[in-house]
């Protein structure tokens, strides 16, 4: 597996973690629940956008 494929796998894992953690944090009744939940969900969206950009951008780079 190349670095680009491993990076895509990693970012997909990170999106899953960020979305899952965000939903978990929003339901958690700690002081940091709301803020960290929103940050995490925003991160999940940002990483998904980054992933689409990365796949488009890296097409021209030969490994």
């Amino acid at each position: 597996m190349s670095l680009r494929a491993f990076h895509i796998l990693f970012i997909v894992s990170a999106v899953t973690l960020a979305a899952g953690f965000g939903l978990w944090a929003l339901r958690h009744d700690a002081a940091w629940g709301l803020s960290i939940g929103l940050v995490s969900l925003t991160l999940a969206v940002a990483l998904a956008v980054y992933l689409a950009w990365f796949i488009r951008k890296i097409k021209g780079v030969s490994s």
Binding site: A14, F21, W32, I36, L47, V61
Partner: peptide
């Protein structure tokens, strides 16, 4: 400490992005 661990998770995710960009920069 969940907030500190969250910060560390962000740091590592960002570092993986810079790592792959480093390789892509060399490849170009």
């Amino acid at each position: 400490n969940v907030p500190l661990a969250t910060l560390n998770t962000l740091v590592l995710i960002f570092s993986s992005v810079t790592m792959v960009m480093s390789w892509a920069s060399l490849a170009t």
